[in-house]
Amino acid sequence: MEFILGHLNYWFVIVLMMTGLYIVISRGNLVKKIVGLNVFQVSVFMLYISIGKVTGGTAPIFPTDLQGKIQIDPTIVYSNPLPHVLILTAIVVGIATTSLGLALIVRIREEYNTIEEQDILDQDAATAHAENLAHGDAMGGRA
C-alpha cells in the first residue's frame, strides 16, 4: 500500500507523458503535434519536480527579516531546489522549441496551404513522383 501510494504520483505522470507522446505521434495536425509535445514535456517536468518533493517540506526560499537578513530555522524542511532549477531551464527550452515549431507551421501553411501531415505527405509524394519521372531513369537503369 505504502509502495503504491509512494509511487502513484509517478504513475500518474507516466500516464500524462504517454498521452502527450501519443498525441505527437498519432495526430496528423501540425499544431496539435506541438500541443502534444507541450503536454509531453510538461509531464516530464512534473516527474522532475516530484523527485524534488520532500514530505512536509516547503519551497526552498529562506525566510528573511525586515532587513533582508536570512533567518535560519533548523526545523523547516526544504524541498530539493535542484530539480526546480533544471525544470526552469527546461521550460525555457520548451517554449523555444514551441515557438520555432509554430513559426515553421506558419511557413508550411503558406507553402502547402495545409497544416495536415497527410496532405503534406501527399503533396511531397506527388512532387517526388514528378521528380522521379523527370530524373529517374535517365541514367540508364536503376543500378
Binding site: L21, L37, F40, V44, Y48, L100, E111, Y112
Partner: peptide, 30 residues
Amino acid sequence: RRALSAAYDYLIMGTIGATFFVIGLGLLYM
C-alpha cells in the same frame, strides 16, 4: 519548400529524442 516539412519533422523527432534523454536523466538523478 520541402525543407520546411523536413525541418518540422526533424524538430518533432529531435524534441522527442531530447525529451527522452531528459527523462533518462531524471531517472538517473532520482
